[in-house]
Design a protein around this nucleic acid. Structure first.
Length: 469
RNA sequence: GCGCCUCUAGCUCAACUGGCAGAGCAGCAGACUCUUAAUCUGCGGGUUCAGGGUUCGAGUCCCUGGGGGCGCACCA
C-alpha cells in the first residue's frame, strides 16, 4: 500500500522550535518559510477537502494542515493511521483559528503503525501495559516522557556537579567473586571458562575504595547494582546507585555534599529547592537537620536507648514497642530495628540520621567520640532512605575483625552477610587515607524530584514476570 | 514468600440479587474547504486471563493456575 520508507529524513525543526520561533505570527497568515518536521501523527481531523493532523515529537505537538490543492496524494494523507510516523515538509502558517501549522506540501510515511494506538482521550492507563510497552506509554502519557527526561537530567547534572569538584568517574566490575559492600542477597551467575560462580554486584563500594588506596583521591561511579530481594513500589531488583569516595574528608563533608547536590538538582530542574512530594511540602534547602539515631528514637518512640544498655533491657523496650526481634541480635541490631520500625517512616525530612551502631555497619569507621557507634548517616527524605554514607573504615585490623563477624553471621545462615575480602584487606594494609564515602539511590532521588510514588515510574523497563505465563 | 484486591473489544470502561455481552474512542464505508478529543450517517469488531466445577442457564458463584496492583516480610 504505502511506499518503502526512506532511509533517512532531514528534519529542520522540532515542534517546540516552531512554537518558539512563530509565537508572534498572526492568525490566518502564511509565511514563506519552508520547514521539515517529523514525528508521529496521533490525532487527525479530516474535513472534506481539508485535513488537519497533530504531529507529535519529543518536544511537543504541531498541527499539520493539508489541502487537496497543495498536498500531494491528499486522499492517502487523509487516510493515514493514528500513530504513523511521518516526515512532512511545507510552509509555516497559522490557521484562521490561530493554530500554528505546517502546510503539507510534501510528505512521506517514515513508519507505519500497524497496531492501533490507545484511546486518544483516555490514553493508556493499565500500568502493566505501560511498563511492558513503554514504547507506547512514552507517546501516550506525557508525564511518563517528562519523568524520563528528568531522570536523564538528574544523572547528567550529577556527573557535572561531581566533575566540577574534581571527582573522576570510573567503572568497576559488575561480576564479583566475593560478596561485599552492602548487606544484601546477591544474584549468582556462573562463568563457564573459569568454572566459577560469580555474584552480580550488590555495591561497587569495595572496588571504589581500592581506587582511593590507589591514589585516585576522588572517584565516583553511577551504575547498576543488583539485589536478589522482593519487588515493591520502592524496590526493583536492579537499580542505579551513585557512589563516591573522597580522600581526606569525613562524613560531615559528605553531608554538605549531599544537601548541596540534591538542593542544586531541585533548583536546576524546578527552579526552587522548595518542592512538594505527594501533595506535601518538602523543603530541600540546606542545611538539612542533623540528628542522631538515638535522638530520633527518643522523639518518635519516646524511649531512651543506647547500644551500651544491657541486652535484656533493650529487648524489653523492643517488646514494649511491639518491635519483633531475633534472639541472635545484639544491641546494635536491636537499636537499628527499633529505629526502623518506629521512626524512619515518620521522618519527613530532609534529615541526616547520624551515628549508627557499629554492629550493623561493617565498613564504617568507629565514631571519634561515641564508643559502640560509627560515623555513618543516612539522608532520610519523605520517610525513605535516599542514601548511605560514612567516614570509611581504614584500619585493616578492625576491618578484618568486622569481616570475620560478618562471615560468622553468614555461616550462621544469614545469606545477606558479607564474606572476608582478603584482597580488599590487602589494599587497606597498603594504606587507605581518611576517606568519606557516599551512596545515593538515583531511582529514589528521581522519584522525589519527579514527584512519583512508584519506582517503576522512574525505571524505563522495570523487572516484571514474563508476559506469557 | 504470605494476605487482600483486580483482569470484559486495539484503548477507556459498563453489564441490578446468576437470565440474549454493551458504550465511547479507535477501525472500516460515506458526507463535509479552518478543524482542535472536529462533526454527521452507516457497518464490522469478544477464548469476558486460562482450565475445571455448581446450575436449566456463569462475565457474575466455587476450585486450581497465570498476570498485575497494594500491604506485610526483606531491603536502598
Amino acid at each position: 500500500m504505502s511506499a518503502t520508507p526512506p532511509y533517512r529524513f532531514d528534519r529542520t525543526a522540532t515542534a517546540a522550535e516552531l512554537h518558539d520561533r512563530y509565537a508572534g505570527l498572526d492568525d490566518g497568515t502564511e509565511t514563506a518559510d519552508v520547514v521539515s518536521v517529523a514525528g508521529r501523527m496521533l490525532l487527525r481531523r479530516v474535513q472534506g477537502k481539508l485535513a488537519f493532523g497533530t504531529l507529535t515529537d519529543p518536544t511537543g505537538r504541531v498541527q499539520l494542515f493539508a489541502r487537496t490543492d497543495s498536498t500531494p496524494r491528499f486522499d492517502e494523507f487523509a487516510a493515514l493511521s493514528l500513530g504513523d510516523w511521518l516526515g512532512v515538509t511545507g510552509t509555516v502558517m497559522k490557521t484562521r483559528r490561530g493554530e500554528l501549522s505546517v502546510r503539507v506540501d510534501e510528505w512521506c510515511v517514515l513508519a507505519e503503525a500497524r497496531r492501533q494506538f490507545p484511546d486518544k482521550w483516555h490514553g493508556l492507563v493499565d500500568v502493566d501495559t505501560r511498563y511492558r510497552q513503554r514504547y507506547v506509554d512514552l507517546w501516550v502519557n506525557e508525564e511518563a516522557r517528562r519523568t524520563f527526561l528528568l531522570r536523564s537530567k538528574v544523572i547528567s547534572s550529577t556527573r557535572r556537579f561531581l566533575e566540577d569538584r574534581g571527582f573522576l568517574e570510573v567503572e568497576t566490575p559488575l561480576l564479583h567473586a566475593v560478596q561485599g559492600g552492602a548487606t544484601a542477597k546477591p544474584f549468582v551467575t556462573h562463568h563457564n571458562a573459569l568454572d566459577m560462580d560469580l555474584f552480580l554486584r550488590i555495591a561497587p563500594e569495595l572496588y571504589l575504595k581500592r581506587l582511593v588506596a590507589g591514589g585516585l583521591e576522588r572517584v565516583f561511579e553511577i551504575g547498576r547494582v543488583f539485589r536478589n530481594e522482593g519487588i515493591s513500589p520502592r524496590h526493583n531488583p536492579e537499580f542505579t546507585m551513585l557512589e563516591l569516595y573522597w580522600a581526606y574528608a569525613d562524613y560531615t563533608d559528605a553531608m554538605e555534599l549531599t544537601e548541596t547536590l540534591v538542593a542544586g538538582l531541585a533548583t536546576e530542574i524546578h527552579g526552587t529547592s522548595k518542592l512538594t512530594y505527594g501533595g506535601r511540602d518538602l523543603d530541600l534547602t540546606p542545611p538539612w537537620r542533623r540528628a542522631t539515631m538515638v535522638e530520633l528514637i527518643a522523639e518518635h518512640a519516646g524511649v531512651e536507648v543506647d547500644v551500651a544498655m544491657p541486652i535484656d533491657e533493650l529487648r524489653a523496650i523492643a517488646k514494649g514497642l511491639r518491635v519483633s526481634f531475633k534472639p541472635a541480635w545484639g544491641p546494635g541490631k536491636l537499636v537499628l530495628e527499633i529505629y526502623e520500625k518506629t521512626s524512619e517512616a515518620e521522618i519527613w525530612g530532609p534529615v541526616f540520621v547520624c551515628d549508627y551502631p557499629q554492629e550493623v555497619s561493617p565498613l564504617a569507621r568507629v565514631h571519634r567520640s561515641k564508643p559502640g557507634y560509627v560515623e555513618r548517616f543516612e539522608p532520610i527524605v519523605a520517610g525513605r532512605e535516599l542514601g548511605n554514607a560514612f567516614s570509611e573504615l581504614i584500619d585493616p585490623d578492625d576491618q578484618r575483625a568486622r569481616f570475620e563477624a560478618q562471615a560468622a553471621e553468614k555461616d550462621a545462615g544469614d545469606d545477606e552477610a558479607m564474606s572476608v575480602d582478603e584482597d580488599y584487606l590487602r589494599a587497606l594494609e597498603y594504606g587507605l587515607p581518611p576517606t568519606a564515602g557516599l551512596g545515593i539511590g538515583i531511582d529514589r532521588l528521581v522519584m522525589l524530584l519527579a514527584d512519583v510514588p512508584n519506582i517503576r515510574d522512574v525505571i524505563l523497563f522495570p523487572t516484571l514476570r514474563p508476559e506469557s505465563g
